[in-house]
Design a binder for these strands. Sequence first.
DNA 1: CTGCATCCACATGGATACTG
DNA 2: CAGTATCCATGTGGATGCAG
Lengths: 143, 143
Amino acid sequence: MPQKLIPNHRTINSKQLLKKEEKNSIIEICPVRNVIARFGNKWALLVVLVISEHECVRFNELCRLIPDVSSRVLSGTLKTLEADALVARKVYPTVPPKVEYRLTDIGRSLMPLIAQLTEWAQTNMKTIVKHRKAFDTKAAKAN
Amino acid sequence: MPQKLIPNHRTINSKQLLKKEEKNSIIEICPVRNVIARFGNKWALLVVLVISEHECVRFNELCRLIPDVSSRVLSGTLKTLEADALVARKVYPTVPPKVEYRLTDIGRSLMPLIAQLTEWAQTNMKTIVKHRKAFDTKAAKAN
DNA sequence: CTGCATCCACATGGATACTG
DNA sequence: CAGTATCCATGTGGATGCAG
């Protein structure tokens, strides 16, 4: 059971106790949210997966492998991934420059979890989408 | 191995082939991204977890249990969660109104995955945060 | 080739006030 | 009690152009 997701929110009884500066303190400390937030961004998960399939990828390869990402965003995604030690960046000081990205150990350790999420998503996706559609039309009718 | 994350991007060679209307088509189809995107939002995961701990929660309870979420955002989060069939909403037509939220089966089936993510996050968080800090200061020095 | 700078559009979240 | 309405601040992502 995940007890530490909200490390100490149980000890706080009322939001009145929270001062402005303390806002977000609870959620910022939470490790899981912190990690999940990384994959909430549009491309991070996809980038990790694509890299994992190639063992070692160059920047432009990623650009091509992920059709509709701009280089600016891809660059940013890679930087946060690198900052988080999930991918390693290796620069060859040649002309023209060559940069390789590969997963770190910690990045690779994430793969089984992604695989499970994938599996869960695939088995439940149809139900979810169907339900979502029904829900939307019902809401539209109510309006 | 998660093969379906990018269902058919391998069959597309160049982004030049993509017309405007086809943009995002690849990623929208992707079930995992679709699911993960739900937890990318700031509160969804937390809400699911809190509900899972209580078997049945009322709106204002959630407001109190999650200290710094506004009712507007909480309401929206619950609505998408309900649309996705992850939580069920039960209204008692009393005065004043009473509404209960609980996890659906499909919502509960997600819990083990969240638990694993939690575990992974907790074991790797320290490393990640440390690396992130080092990375940031190094970047700051370069500037 | 790799990526940053700039500018812009839009979605998300937050604060406050109000209703059935 | 359980939300909705309104307005606003911010951040994230996209397009384009340029630089080392």
